[in-house]
Nucleic acid binder design. Structure first.
Lengths: 342, 342
DNA sequence: CTGAAAGCGCTTACAG
DNA sequence: CTGAAAGCGCTTACAG
């Protein structure tokens, strides 16, 4: 035989019709066990694999998911948000488990996502990670909804768009981590991380932070909140700005671990001892957090569970089953940078 | 119109045949400019996208590449080798640039790679990253060659198999980093990293290391080489074994950064000051290397360039163009853990 | 349980 | 430069 074997080749050898081969290979109950076994045996001998393009074309379903990664606008070319990277493993594995292939793509915000993947029948649904600026992103989400493209995303739930989002309880996380510091005697807080409509997750963390302060009878000082997008460099610069306020500080709550690495760097440069003089806490629990000196206390988002859930929900959506948003609990991971045990 | 627009819909509106539409959309010179423009205009209005499955089926080419990631046997479920992760960005981007889609998959060593991706026409070629044990891997490579599946891989070149591999000059890297330490007065070396046929890259680094010692009139002491696979934990344990030899040591050359984090941890636990009492150097320059304390001196493999090259070579291979192995230069990155400037 | 036939939406000889 | 037709390799009504 030249070229790849087709279902016709198998049919010929098995002495049955091509339709029967197709049914047998997909374990249709319409085929007798004996016939099925014979056909599957021959298929194995011929190293036969169903042609994906033909079956997808005919059945109008690709059993492929597309993962779209959006980068933060300022991040360097080769750097992907490490938190998303850590989701990749479980997303890939879960896809494999459910029999889906996974297309991965870095997206520019100006592309037409729906046409690129869904309209061309490359993928049955989309997983969205990250977004750059949230406002532009929201407009894109509306497009997807309009085209009734099945998709799920990691991020904050929104009332304004009817989408399935999976995110962690950022408000609770911000509260949790701040409350821990207060309980251990910290009183003068700074906060580093962008707080505006373009970054709803950072904002929720900040609001949780403020809530903890209020409940403890402390006051959030807006002057001690400095914006930073998700980079080490921004964290470094924002910290210098914060210190320039010349206010007493014994703790800095940071909106992400990546930013926190820059905070630690700035404090070290200024000779401020962490955690003795100033506690620092991050958010995410990316791999790096274990290696900083002092090791970073942070708020873990379970990226493995998140990846599995994103895939599961998307597949449900594709099958037309009802799905709900998921809101994951965060977990306080105490290391050295907050100066407490446990 | 219900459902997605097809080339027939466009043909109808443009008053031409469907064949002409197909040609016009692919910028065939066989179509007059006027007709082409008209057709492309209508396509845009209808939000038309070529059906990937139909075009792939008909043309027998998918313009899709598959990235197969193999995990080290011992690594935990959600953890992917950070060095490979850092290639992912540039691989994805380069694929986009060349108009290819990218399927990503974690592979078990027992799967039939060719049938899974190439024989089913899901992908035109394969990119292989990592391998667990090299001997099993080699057998798999032979299979691919036998099925004439186009593929490229990151790793050491082999004479025994006719494949396109892209790797760094591990021997030179091992030499370079050791030579640097010798030049700065270190004399008593340990080496941590698996040195056997199952890990040819680590072995090459070790051989380069030994070569540098020999040239300097020093002697490599096999007793001071301890095996470790690519994990922090293994690095930690191997270091304890090394120290238990009770031999004088003023430098440890480590086969990877990930292992080196475990080495640093063990030394800290034993109260051995890095770099004052003992220098430590890694290999790879993964993101974590900048954050350890002391920051890790290491040998950089340019993952961005590597990713681009892997994609470019694979596409050449698919097009039937001749390709050659690539051997990238390593770069010494001096940080704090070796105790020298520059 | 099985087969003959249609058709998914394209690309590409072939003919003009 | 354009069109009519074949066909990529399947899945799935339809008929028996």
């Amino acid at each position: 035989m030249k070229g790849k074997a087709t279902s016709f080749d198998i049919a010929y050898r098995a002495g049955v019709s091509q339709s029967t081969v197709s049914r047998a290979l997909r374990n249709s109950p319409l085929v007798s066990e004996k016939t099925r076994e014979k056909i599957q045996q021959i298929a194995k001998e011929l190293n036969y694999t169903v042609d994906k393009n033909a079956s997808s074309l005919r059945s109008q379903t690709s059993t492929t998911l597309a993962l779209l990664l959006f980068e933060d606008p300022t991040s360097d070319d080769s750097l992907v948000n490490p938190f998303f990277l850590s989701m990749l493993g479980s997303i890939t594995r879960e896809c494999g488990k459910l029999g889906y292939d996974l297309l991965v793509s870095f997206q520019e915000l100006d592309a037409d996502w729906h046409s690129v993947f869904k309209d061309s029948n490359k993928a049955d649904g989309l997983i969205l990670l990250g977004y750059g600026d949230y406002l532009d992103y929201e407009a894109k989400l509306r497009e997807l909804v309009k085209h009734s493209t099945p998709f799920v995303r990691w991020g904050a739930a929104t009332k304004s768009i009817d989408t399935c989002s999976i995110g962690c309880d950022n408000f609770h996380g911000g509260w949790q981590i701040t409350e821990h510091l207060i309980k251990h005697g910290r009183k003068q807080f700074g906060f580093i991380g962008a707080v505006h409509d373009g970054a709803p997750e950072f904002r929720a963390r900040y609001e949780g932070h403020c809530e903890a302060l209020t409940r403890a009878g402390l006051e959030a000082n807006a002057q001690l909140q400095k914006n930073a997008v998700n980079t080490e460099e921004d964290g470094f610069n924002a910290t210098l700005q914060l210190l320039a306020e010349n206010q007493p500080l014994d703790a800095i709550v940071v909106a992400s671990d990546l930013i926190a690495t820059g905070v630690l760097k700035a404090l070290e440069q200024k000779g401020i001892k962490v955690p003795e003089q100033c506690a620092v806490v991050g958010f995410d629990d990316v791999p790096i957090a274990r290696y900083t000196k002092p090791a970073l206390t942070t708020c873990r988002q379970d990226s493995t569970a998140a990846g599995v859930m994103l895939v599961d929900k998307l597949v449900q959506l594709i099958k037309g089953e009802p799905v709900t948003d998921a809101f994951m609990k965060t977990k306080l991971i105490v290391r050295e940078s907050c100066g407490t045990q446990q």
